[in-house]
């Protein structure tokens, strides 16, 4: 068996140049985190505190201003299917059918031939076998998001980055998808980092909730959630966690 994966974020800062003025935005400042395989990290924080920036750094879509990110000691350079990311919007390729979207990654790496059965299997898992020849424009929001998730999962990423993947869904679909994602994670035990605005969702799903603070973006607290799955949203410990995290977020807003 391969060694357990460790993602280290070492003193990472990220600044963006502004377009109009000459200043820069410090999106993230001195972030230090160590995340392990099998963890499910929920990332919460006020809008603009750099959550998406953090995911994009881990994905390798952008490079840090200071510091470095490593996976098992190897520096992250550029994106890779091993670090899959699902965006807030489904961002499916509109000119490709569901099936083509799912096989995109294989076709880019010229190994679709060996992986045809994976596409079949995942179509079954997301329950869209009958929609394989449809284009994204013909899918509902929830269906599209499921395809986006499946398109990333099909590469069996070691690290799964989810940027508010359920933000655009109605409450019911959302709860279903939460359970789907959880069962998938419990089966494969990758490292999942999920951004969410919903504190309940963060506690319901995460082994650890990372609370972030804005201007500049910092890690304010790491709160391990010591509850067994499946979690009960109305249990007293759940409510306690919720109050604790909400307090922190409120405090951040007043500052």
């Amino acid at each position: 068996m391969a060694e357990a994966l460790v993602l280290k974020i070492d003193g990472v800062s990220k600044s963006f140049a502004r377009v109009e003025t000459n200043d820069i935005t410090n999106a993230l400042e001195n972030i230090n985190l160590e995340l392990h395989q099998g963890e499910f990290i929920s990332l919460v924080g006020t809008s603009g505190c750099g959550k998406s920036t953090m995911l994009r750094l881990i994905a390798g879509l952008i490079t840090p201003t200071y510091g470095q990110l490593t996976v098992n000691g190897k520096k992250i350079e550029g994106p890779s299917p091993d670090r899959g990311m699902v965006f807030q919007q489904p961002t499916l390729f509109p000119w490709q059918t569901v099936e083509q979207n799912l096989s995109f990654s294989f076709r880019m790496r010229n190994n679709y031939g060996e992986n045809k059965d994976k596409v079949e299997r995942i179509l079954k898992v997301i329950g869209l076998e009958n929609f394989r020849r449809d284009y994204p424009a013909q899918l509902s929001g929830g269906m599209a998001q499921r395809v986006a998730l499946a398109r990333t999962l099909i590469c069996s990423p070691e690290i799964l980055l989810l940027d508010e993947p359920l933000g655009a869904l109605d409450a019911f679909t959302r709860m279903n998808m939460q359970d789907e994602i959880l069962s998938m994670w419990r089966e494969n035990r990758q490292l999942v980092v999920m951004v969410t605005h919903d504190v309940d969702e963060a506690i319901y799903m995460g082994t650890k909730v990372v609370v972030m603070d804005a201007h500049p973006g910092r890690v304010k607290a790491e709160i391990p959630i010591e509850l067994d799955y499946p979690r009960n949203r109305s249990s007293s410990q759940f409510v306690e966690y919720r109050n604790q995290i909400l307090d922190m977020l409120d405090y951040g807003a007043k500052e």
Binding site: P81, M108, T152
Partner: peptide, 23 residues
Amino acid sequence: SLFDAARILGAKGHQLVFRVAIP
């Protein structure tokens, strides 16, 4: 964001032009 999605899925260089930008 389509470029980001494609890069995450392993598309590189000319693939980004021919498989994403042009379509």
